[in-house]
Amino acid sequence: MLKIKNIHKSFGKNEILKGVDLTIDKGDVVVILGPSGSGKTTLLRCINFLEKADSGNASFGDLHVDLHAASKKDIHSIRQKTAFVFQNYNLFNNKTALENVIEGLIVGRKIPKAEAIEIGKKALEKVGLSDKYDSYPSQLSGGQQQRVGIARAVALNPDIILFDEPTSALDPELVGEVLEVMKNIANEGTTMLVVTHEMSFAKDVAKRVIFMDGGVVVEEGTPHEIFVRPKEERTKKFLKRVLPEDYTFYI
């Protein structure tokens, strides 16, 4: 459903993406792992045109675009098919939880307000926030804000949801509630591309795991292949650092 080909991106002289290919099928949950600076986030942002790639192509069903020279119309139609969940939530501060969720429906997709409110309420219910419709972001905890962020993405009913380290900015005790919500929507068959450091999520939920380092895809496979039998040296090293061995505690 989503095919990315040979995507390149540099910031100044610093080459972040050095030709990444990526294929995601409908209903897949794909997790991207990798050390910081490996280009995971940049890849996600390029797919949604939050950054402009230097070169590369994307196919979205029957929509083919050049990631460097996409027209405004193409960018708009890709954004209609995708939704983005940000690391630091980026909820609209001047809008309530419900208004955050329905903004894209009413303004972006021109859905009538009454219908949008119904969809929005359902989305917030799904993430367990049916009592927070009228709360402003400043009144919500980080975990609640990120759940609103997920509801905002889910409500758009996109073909794919891009998650950019959705739990990295959260206090440890709030990570669980967000992962739980992500698991639920994954189980409903939502196509997801997730950049995360939560190994448990990758192990339990992902259909495929991609390991990136230095701007390229080093290895990809099922969680079992990556976590239990990694082939590449770089993958092994990375996993050794982030996965404490059983029964060993680090203080």
Partner: peptide
């Protein structure tokens, strides 16, 4: 106004103009 506000607005399909009018300007005005 954090740049993320504009990005979030773009990501849900608002045009630049809509994003400024509905999200960025109300916050900047305060």
């Amino acid at each position: 106004v954090n740049k993320g506000q504009l990005e979030a607005a773009q990501s849900i399909g608002l045009s630049n103009f809509q994003a400024y009018r509905r999200i960025v300007i109300p916050q900047a005005l305060v």
